[in-house]
């Protein structure tokens, strides 16, 4: 069985599915970041705005991922783009929640002193608030990334491709080899994403803390 699995993994069906899976996941994450970060910066201007964004995102997180993908179907039909849209919608809430919380929790004394030093609003955002909030934002990014890689497995149900296709093919043909040739790489990919982003988050934290402690001392 192991030989047959390796054979499938070396074949063209697998490499195409893997490429689709990665393309779908990376694209969804990038688009989600491009939407969620500016939105978080915007809503963090007012307490009501961030409260609203956090609560709406929390409700959004309650929608099952299969539901989001399946709901794209009646509106957008089958294929890569509906799957991409659904995965992007799925990836936004964790990033938005963490970025909104991270930006909100930057001590106001730090922001005040930056303003006192003559920094503009944009400079305060990019040089002070974003670096201090970075570890929290990265934690949200990590949650999103793992969720997107996992949910991209379901894209196959709406014709979006990805490694889930091999699992489904295996289940339909009663072929454990195909099932595992899809399932094991997906599981490894998700774990690698978790560990990789975890490492990035840790690598970022000391720097963020340095910024934090230095400004607290000042």
């Amino acid at each position: 069985m192991a030989e047959r699995i390796l054979e499938i993994i070396q074949g063209p069906i697998f490499s195409r599915a893997l490429a689709e899976h990665l393309r779908l996941s990376v694209a969804a994450l990038v688009v989600a970041v491009l939407i969620a970060l500016p939105l978080a910066a915007l809503v963090s201007q007012s307490p009501l705005g961030s409260l609203l964004a956090i609560n709406i995102s929390n409700i959004g997180r309650a929608v099952p991922s299969l539901a989001i993908l399946a709901l794209a179907l009646p509106f957008l039909g089958l294929g890569f783009r509906p799957a991409l849209l659904a995965l992007t919608l799925l990836a936004i809430p964790p990033i938005l929640i963490n970025a909104a919380i991270g930006l909100r929790e930057v001590p106001s004394s730090v922001v005040e002193s930056a303003r006192g030093m003559g920094m503009s609003g944009l400079q305060i955002l990019t040089r002070i608030r974003l670096p201090i909030a970075a570890p929290v934002i990265f934690a949200g990014l990590r949650t999103s990334a793992v969720q997107v890689v996992a949910s991209a497995t379901l894209a196959t149900f709406i014709g979006g491709g990805g490694l889930g296709g091999l699992i489904v093919r295996g289940l339909q043909r009663n072929s454990p080899e195909f099932q595992l040739a899809g399932a094991i790489p997906v599981a490894l990919l998700a774990m690698a994403t978790e560990l990789g982003f975890g490492g990035l988050q840790r690598a970022l934290t000391p720097k963020g803390l340095r910024v934090g402690s230095r400004s607290r001392a000042a």
Partner: peptide
């Protein structure tokens, strides 16, 4: 438990089914 948590569900189900004695 953190690693178990990251396994995508469809993949988890598919792996479990290949175990002897576990049917769909």
């Amino acid at each position: 438990t953190g690693l178990l948590y990251t396994i995508p569900s469809l993949s988890f189900f598919a792996i479990l089914i290949t175990f002897p004695g576990v049917k769909i």
